[in-house]
């Protein structure tokens, strides 16, 4: 169905339904709002159908459709982000602070039991469905506001400067929030997927 000729996508092919399902899951994760996610996916599909002639067939159809969806979500976030008060974000970021501080001793060195162990062949996890289920669960466990900043940075590929401007927070605050998000995600994957083996420092 991945016909390389532009403008010849079979929209009734079952693979489209699978892509749509994956797009919906992605949008829900980004927006944490089932209704808005449904709207975004619908809009993205309409756009894809309307502009199918511009699909050059050089990239996979799914990759192309996901890039359209990402643009729709970015537009949506730009329109709605002003509703989030910057102060809320700052306060939200402070919440998880103690958790991470607790991993270190007073001099800022890892507690022996909290040292990150070596992850065995992490690349191979990327092709396992169970890994992605754990990954989703870990993303969903991040505090909502921390997650919003992380999603904007990593999934929508916005630069930190733009995220700060959109959300009305300082650049250094943005870095702190991103650090918390990554550290939280790492800890969750370590615990729920990679298991613990311990490492020497």
């Amino acid at each position: 169905m991945n016909d390389s000729a532009a403008g010849r996508i079979d929209w009734n092919d079952p693979s489209i339904a699978r892509i749509r399902r994956d797009m919906l899951r992605f949008a829900q994760l980004q927006l944490r709002d089932a209704g808005a996610a449904e709207d975004m996916v619908q809009e993205a599909l309409f756009s894809a159908m309307k502009y199918e002639a511009s699909f050059a067939g050089r990239s996979a159809l799914k990759t192309w459709m996901f890039s359209i969806l990402r643009n729709k979500i970015v537009d949506h976030i730009r329109k709605s982000s002003r509703e989030i008060a910057g102060a809320d974000l700052v306060d939200g970021s402070a919440e998880g602070g103690d958790d991470f501080d607790a991993l270190f001793d007073q001099r800022g060195h890892w507690n022996p039991e909290d040292r990150p162990p070596t992850w065995a062949d992490p690349e191979s996890s990327l092709s396992q469905q169970q890994f992605w289920d754990v990954f989703d669960a870990c993303l969903n466990r991040l505090p909502a506001k921390t997650s919003r900043v992380f999603m904007m940075r990593e999934f929508l590929d916005l630069e930190t400067d733009e995220i700060c401007a959109e959300l009305g927070i300082s650049t250094s605050n943005c870095w702190v929030i991103l650090h918390r998000a990554r550290a939280g995600l790492r800890l969750c994957l370590d615990r729920d997927w990679f298991g613990r083996e311990g490492a020497a420092c």
Partner: peptide, 30 residues
């Protein structure tokens, strides 16, 4: 060693999110 592991894991997170956002989540299916 612990911080070296931490750094590699941060890089792995970047790889995983790149994969995810292109819809290449899980086994190749298209």
């Amino acid at each position: 060693r612990a911080c070296t592991n931490f750094r590699q894991q941060m890089k792995f997170l970047r790889t995983a999110t790149r994969r995810y956002r292109e819809g290449q989540r899980g086994p190749a299916d298209d």
